[in-house]
Design a protein around this nucleic acid. Structure first.
Lengths: 216, 216
DNA sequence: ACCTGAACACCGTTCAAGT
DNA sequence: ACCTGAACACCGTTCAAGT
């Protein structure tokens, strides 16, 4: 019999992420996770206080994947902040369940805190006042999270076939939403349209606005 | 024995919202809801296909409370769009559980669709192109939802006493997050600071940016 | 120090049976 | 047409007992 190596939090989190990626966060239960780890559900409680700690842990694990090198002393906050926003979106999209967990957890882990510290450090060392830091960060964060949440819960419109497309357009117009109908048939449901492509428009608009506010 | 009036979806949704408001969305179960309605859990399935329909229903009910009069023919989209964003935030804050449901539901109800139709109609009748409509709406929606999500999941910092405040500052600085620590002690944790006050800064920055993009 | 089995108090949902 | 009781297949978590 080969002896199993001791279980660690790291291994538990890794397996939990795999489960959530493959079967959805709704199917991540302590019992199923334990089964995957070849132990009984109750054994997990030797390593974790409760499921909360598991969820906090895997969110933080996702955040730890953000590319982490930044010249905090940089004098150009704008391209750097842009890069950070893009990076956050990228890791969240890799694990679509993570965005929903992120803002329902009240105990941010070290990687989440490290990220906040990095962004605030960037702004502060570029001469942003406390209030401009707070304004800017609230704005960028809200936008990125809000955008990714919508993106992750969008029906996979790519695979949407012509029949159900016209069906949903017809349903809309029957219920009396003329503008929405028009917009859907003339724009949203065209195969060229991709919600994801909207991300940079909003991000750059926000960054330009912050720049103007910063310069007074 | 007084005869109970027939149960309707409207009554079920109303009771469900009351339950979620009072005890949190986590405590809204089919069984508890049925008990409040003085019926057995299984009877709910005579009125609803499943719990999904319940959640779709109560989200839509929340959206139906948005003030709904709008002069869609208005030539000034900016104050109107601003008012809509503020109204959406207001109703979502009244039912803090609703924001999390909103973007996990894939079947938007009539009130949600009506709202989308209204905003798109406003922009379209003010001469926005399809692509500017899509850009603008994605941006505003992302911001509002992202902001409200953060707002709803913030620890009730108002009641936070001095002891735990300094404790959390110390914890931060011990872990080595100097900027975050500084920002917390010099700004975020001061009693005058309120995250909610950040909302209008971002909203107006975005609206001004859209205005510039619209004018070319 | 770690794992286990049995148990508790829950879930959503189905189904056959009642009125 | 609506309601019910029993049942199924799940949850997270506790606790006393094992090694």
């Amino acid at each position: 019999m080969k002896r199993k190596k001791a279980l660690t939090k790291a291994k538990i989190f890794k397996e939990a992420i795999k489960l959530a990626d493959n079967y959805g966060i709704a199917n991540l239960s302590m019992r199923k996770l334990a089964k995957k780890l070849n132990i009984e559900a109750m054994s997990l409680y030797n390593h974790l206080a409760n499921k909360e700690e598991l969820l906090d842990g895997i969110v933080d694990e996702v955040f730890s994947k953000i590319d982490w090198r930044t010249d905090t002393k940089s004098k150009s906050w704008k391209p750097e902040l842009r890069k950070q926003a893009i990076a956050v979106r990228a890791v969240l999209l890799q694990h679509p369940w993570s965005i929903k967990l992120l803002n329902s957890r009240s105990n941010p882990g070290p990687s989440v805190l490290r990220h906040h510290n990095k962004v605030l450090g960037l702004l502060m060392s570029c001469g942003f006042s406390y209030s401009m830091c707070a304004h800017t960060y609230a704005l960028i964060d809200s936008y990125v999270y809000g955008f990714v949440i919508q993106e992750c819960s969008l029906p996979a419109t790519r695979g949407c076939d012509f029949v159900e497309m016209t069906a949903s357009i017809n349903a809309l117009s029957r219920q009396g939403f003329p503008y929405l109908t028009k917009m859907a048939e003339e724009y949203y449901l065209k195969p060229e349209y991709s919600f994801s492509d909207e991300f940079l428009f909003g991000l750059d608009l926000i960054l330009n606005g912050v720049e103007q506010a910063f310069k007074h």
